[in-house]
Design a binder for these strands. Structure first.
Lengths: 191, 191
DNA sequence: CCTCTGGTAGACTGGCCAGTCTAATTTCGG
DNA sequence: CCGAAATTAGACTGGCCAGTCTACCAGAGG
């Protein structure tokens, strides 16, 4: 069993599932990987197993770094806002959402751990960052995770919905918009 | 062709599609409606047609009334916040999202018109309401639709994601939370 | 040169489903 | 009460798919 073929299949499966959801046929995945159907089953128990492994590999892609000194909070948040919007509102992010949502009821534990590793972790990190800023007197004191969730909601909330419904909204790379949202957030949380 | 049977089928289809998405079989829908498969085809061209009609009936359910005098803005927004959260974060709202998302690529025009009639209309109405408040000097002047989108994002953004991933968040009927979000919004937009 | 391993192509089973067709039955207006 | 329209159960076609199986092939290591 070559590790190489395994990787090939996994990559092909990821692409297929992203594009068409769980309904992608094993045949299509094998063809895309340039491999026989039997070879897929050589490396993965079943379609479910393949799906789960492919999907797990996606969780990490949601995270966005959150760097910068706490002094220049506005700059840090703006950089983050732009990166997060690009990640989440980009074609990849939307496709992932679409592919995953309908399968949640069939893969509850997987879905939960996906949230924890992706968006949930993002909330925690952002919350920690905001907490620092609160302690430094740059933000009004309040529950930092609540603030983080509000901020993330402001950043992508309605625009993700638009995109999921196939309505094209503002481009995720729109600097001015990211800036405006950050400023709104800072106003709401000024000390 | 009895109108009664037509209604029965439509109701059953709506429930089935909400529960399992487009994959619900016509057989299952017919059984649920207490009707023969053939009867379904008597009233609807095809599964696609049935799906589209069932789904169209759902669009209206998203809208939430936005009443109250402009004087008591905080009370109006809080009432709205609670109702909107209940509507969108409730089991129905989440199921609808899950059922629709994956089919968007196959039904682009339908999806767009669904957005326009549901969430999009909500943004417009809320924007109009906020604009009044801005003119009355109760809110800082700014693009009212932008403000509306931010507000909706704050209200349900991250929590909808949680629920879609099967993570149970705060109950949608949580008055205190709705209140807190409204207050954050008002702080961001105080004159 | 031979054999073992991982791979390939394609046949095959069993299951599900959309959509059509038929023959029998019910319903209801006139 | 009659006859047309609506409805029913169930058979049937054709298509797709997961997963198994078999027979064949290529190359690497002894």
């Amino acid at each position: 069993m070559s590790q190489l073929n395994r990787e090939r299949v996994l990559r092909a499966a990821t692409r297929s599932f992203l594009a068409q959801g769980y309904v992608s046929s094993i045949d299509a995945i094998a063809r895309r990987a340039g491999v026989a159907r039997q070879t897929v089953y050589e490396h993965f128990e079943s379609k479910d197993a393949l799906f789960q492994e492919a999907v797990r590999g996606l969780a990490r892609r949601v995270l966005v770094t959150l760097d910068g000194s706490p002094q220049e909070l506005r700059a840090t948040l703006t950089r983050f806002a732009l990166a997060y919007r690009r990640r989440v509102l980009g074609a990849q992010g939307i496709a992932m959402f679409r592919a995953l949502m309908p399968e949640v009821p069939r893969f509850r534990p997987l879905a939960r751990s996906m949230y924890a590793a992706g968006a949930g972790e993002m909330v925690r990190r952002l919350g920690a960052c905001l907490e620092q800023a609160m302690h430094a007197g740059q933000l009004r004191r309040d529950d930092p995770e609540f603030a983080a969730e509000l901020f993330l909601g402001m950043l992508v909330g309605q625009e993700r919905v638009k995109r999921l419904f196939g309505v094209t909204g503002h481009p995720p790379g729109d600097r001015a918009r990211a800036q405006r949202i950050v400023d709104c957030f800072l106003r709401a949380y000024q000390p």
